[in-house]
Design a protein around this nucleic acid. Structure first.
Ligand SMILES: [Zn+2]
Ligand SMILES: [Zn+2]
Ligand SMILES: [Zn+2]
Ligand SMILES: [Zn+2]
Lengths: 167, 167
DNA sequence: AGATGTATGTTATATTATAACAAGGAGATA
DNA sequence: TATCTCCTTGTTATAATATAACATACATCT
């Protein structure tokens, strides 16, 4: 099995990045994934993924519903939750529990236990690599408990907001 | 400043422990804390803490409301949420996001970034020491982000439930 | 007693999420 | 082509979780 190359964009959303390339690459990866797995990349799914990708801002389900309405889609809760479930199952989105909101995954494709840094001031969210997070999941699994999944959310201040607050 | 002695009971709820002693010690610690900080340990607060302590099972706010009703207290949502907020602020309870439920803290007194192990089968929750969790918060703080708080929840199977599932 | 501050009680409502079932459409099968 | 099957989308209703705003009670201090 070939090792995935490291992701170029958006590994840290707090930094500037080439977002056009980031957006296009993500969309293409999603399309490719759906073809490979024989899943239907419908207009609805594509649109929701686009919303999440647009500026990496976490979106609540009801925000997404509003955006869908504006785009001419049906907009009752199950519509959004179903698509979000799909995106999460396929590894192209995550739920941020702290915000009850959803973000596009920053390194789709590879299975991973994402760690998030959430700015309590601007609500921006960065998804970081396991190796950079200070987390050692192997160490976490004790003989008392079999860890299957880790939900890790750091809350604090991003660089911009730290600066503002220091003023 | 004197170093806190290690907690004797319930550091891992999946293990058997002397629960009578655990219960009494926790109650006393809570009483002592309230006296020291000049906070009122009212019957309501005491009762809710007792519920949480009873068998370490995480309780939802509405479960607690039912139990309060049975004990002759008022039982509209703010009643429970306010007491829970109080217990959390004082460091005697935590919220488990995965379960939308609340547990008594296993090592109250010392400030800590709790890490939880949550059994997806029986919903039991153990709070573990930072040093045992495989988490290094200092390492997690990058120059891009100032970590103030960490929410860490491991989901998996406790020993009993692993055994059952293997059958 | 009167003033103050905190805790509790009450009413209403906001926010987030799911259950259950109906309708539509693409592709396979006959 | 007709029909079957599967999956997606649409609809209606409701569950589950949480908070806002305001009223009352009650202790403590003066
Ligand atoms: Zn981008
Ligand atoms: Zn920020
Ligand atoms: Zn105990
Ligand atoms: Zn279990």
């Amino acid at each position: 099995m070939k090792k995935e190359p490291p992701q170029k964009y958006a590994s840290k959303i707090f930094k500037k990045h080439n977002h056009n390339a980031c957006f296009n690459d993500s969309m293409k990866a999603f399309q490719k994934h759906c073809v490979q797995k024989n899943l239907k990349l419908t207009p609805l799914r594509s649109k929701v993924f686009e919303f999440l990708l647009r500026d990496h801002q976490p979106l609540g389900a009801y925000q997404i519903l509003d955006m869908l309405r504006d785009s001419g889609f049906a907009s009752t809760p199950p519509i959004a939750y179903r698509v979000l479930d799909f995106l999460i199952e396929q590894g192209f989105a995550h739920k941020i529990k702290r915000l009850n909101a959803f973000v596009a995954c920053s390194h789709p494709g590879s299975t991973h236990s994402p760690t998030f840094m959430i700015c309590r001031k601007c609500d921006k969210v960065a998804e970081i690599d396991e190796k950079d997070s200070g987390i050692d999941l192997k160490k976490a699994t004790s003989f008392d408990f079999k860890v299957e999944e880790a939900v890790i959310e750091f809350i604090g201040l991003c660089t911009s907001c730290v600066t503002v607050e220091a003023t």
